[in-house]
């Protein structure tokens, strides 16, 4: 794999992470525990839709085959989607959604922080924009994790369960494959081993504030980055892509 191919794959994966997160977060619109929280989740979803558009357009440009952001988003099947498994998991209760946000945004803001100086100019620009949003999401979700962890017995139990359940999907975040290696050597993308250390320190700190226990690293599920997904992704795509699939070539 050459460095151009690796960049396309990496940028597409980032777009996939963004759109799958957006699909999940937007499920809260109209159904949240509090109007203000519905709005927060909707705003985060909107940020992520915006980010996915930037990543997909950039990937299309790099690829040079005339594929638009929508072609990339709506006309690929699951095996070509490279989002991490963590993001396609169902929302669960509000605590689980918050726990997922914390686990992912902590990773994502570190990743973006490294990418802002990438020689891939456009990727660096997108990262500079996305990191502001990610930092804000993380602050919001972090506050909620603390509230829920240190709230009532029930909220503590629920959010601890959520962290325990999602933990198995956190290993994949730091698994470097060929794409990540080329990105690191040629495009100054973060060293995932390094990033893992930072991630653990930040998560430790947050879990402690939230009076939550950190689960042991047991078996870690993975495969999403390479298109090996759980059963959940198929439904997300079936729903999201339905109009494009039913009416091929139509303009909307």
């Amino acid at each position: 794999m050459n460095k151009e191919k690796a960049l396309i794959a990496y940028v597409t994966r980032m777009g996939d992470n963004a759109i799958i997160m957006a699909q999940r977060l937007s499920e809260w619109v109209g159904h949240g525990p509090e109007l203000e929280e519905e709005m927060a989740m909707g705003n985060f979803a909107l940020d992520y839709v915006g980010q996915s558009r930037m990543y997909f357009s950039y990937a299309g440009e790099l690829e040079g085959k005339g594929r638009s952001e929508d072609d990339i988003c709506f006309l690929r099947d699951g095996w070509d989607y490279g989002n991490v498994l963590l993001l396609e998991q169902p929302n669960g209760d509000y605590g689980e959604t918050i726990a997922r946000l914390v686990l992912f945004e902590t990773f994502y803001s570190l990743q973006l922080g490294a990418l802002v100086t990438s020689p891939a100019k456009k990727l660096a620009e997108i990262a500079a924009r996305a990191i502001k949003e990610s930092t804000y999401h993380l602050r919001h979700a972090g506050h909620w994790l603390i509230r829920l962890g240190d709230g009532t017995d029930e909220s503590h139990r629920r959010v601890q369960d959520a962290i325990d359940r999602l933990w198995t999907y956190t290993g994949e975040l730091f698994e470097a494959d060929q794409v990540d290696q080329i990105m690191q050597s040629d495009w100054e993308a973060p060293d995932l081993t390094d990033l893992r250390g930072h991630w653990h320190r930040q998560i430790d700190e947050l879990l402690a504030k939230a009076t939550l226990q950190k689960p042991d690293d047991g078996w870690m599920d993975s495969g999403g980055k390479n298109g090996h997904h759980s059963e959940h992704l198929g439904y997300i795509l079936a729903e999201m892509q339905s109009l494009q699939r039913t009416y091929p070539g139509a303009n909307w």
């Binding site: 525990p33 509230r147 709230g151 909220s155 629920r158």
Partner: peptide, 11 residues
């Protein structure tokens, strides 16, 4: 969402 609001209040 009741448990979430209760948690926020308790916190």
């Amino acid at each position: 969402g009741r448990w979430v609001r209760e948690a926020a209040r308790a916190y």
